[in-house]
Design a protein around this nucleic acid. Structure first.
Lengths: 149, 149
DNA sequence: GTAGACGTTGACGTGGACGTCAAGGCCAGG
DNA sequence: CCTGGCCTTGACGTCCACGTCAACGTCTAC
């Protein structure tokens, strides 16, 4: 199959495939006319790359998986190097999640504080002579409205 | 104060300050010789920016806070625009954390599966004639070791 | 033979927050 | 006067995974 078809099969673009080839990640055979030629194995490699990409792996991090598949192993993660990448990624994810949670807590606290202070300032500004009575004019009119239909 | 001193006070670099100025985020007065001149208020603005940066805010997201401070408000988050940025950031953080947690779970599951399969393959490869007996030779020697000191 | 759909290489653009030169001006101390 | 340390502007480099455009070759169908 040619580059366009492979791209379509994998839900990506030809530019991406050429990019992978430029990195030596997914080299292609060439037909007589210079066109890149791929087979089903390449599709599997590519799918492996895409799955890891969706997980947020960098392209270099997918290399052990690709190499593992090309070495004939049944899965990209059948090799120790791939497992190491998994573990490193888990650690990274934990760090990142922890960091974001701390930030989230801090930002949430700041928002709550700022909202309190804003409310306090508003109240102080709007009420130099005590709070205005609720429904200052409405109640006397209620009977009218209810009794005049 | 000049740019180098401000940078030092805020724990950043002169390049960063010039960058902020190029964005109109932290403009500077100029001395007669063309040198940038800052005061304590600028330091406060800069500290506000840095805090938000540490939270992962983009520079444009810090602008409402800076504008708010420059407008004379006591805090950068005393203005509605700043509160909106807080809220948007909280939503973003929640999305991001949720995403990362899902990815973490998936990667964790993949690692566990791959480790099981690797172990299974090893076992199958190493034991073509059944599992080796545990402590095949050790037990007979125990009495010797215990009785010969 | 020509239009159109594919393919090729090469090279620059994107976004974000700066880093890192380069070439030169300003000012204090010795 | 000269050195050294600060400052100036301008411009290119970084990282990453491609997007986008240009200019051109190849193959098929009409």
């Amino acid at each position: 199959m040619r580059i366009g078809e492979l791209a379509q099969q994998a839900g990506t673009t030809t530019r991406t495939l050429r990019h992978y080839e430029s990195l030596g990640l997914l080299p292609a055979r060439r037909a007589g006319n210079g066109y890149r030629t791929y087979d089903e194995d390449d599709l599997r490699l590519l799918r492996q790359i895409r799955v890891l990409q969706d997980f947020g792996f960098g392209l270099e991090e997918t290399r052990p998986f690709v190499d593992c598949l090309r070495a004939g192993h049944p899965a990209g993660d059948s090799c120790p190097a791939s497992l190491e990448v998994y573990r490193r990624k888990l650690a990274e994810l934990d760090d990142c999640i922890g960091h974001l949670r701390r930030v989230r807590a801090e930002v949430g606290a700041q928002l709550a504080r700022a909202e309190r202070e804003t409310a306090a300032l508003k109240a102080a500004a709007e009420v130099p002579g005590g709070p205005p009575p609720l429904c200052a004019l409405a109640p006397p009119d209620i009977e009218e409205e209810l009794s005049t239909p």
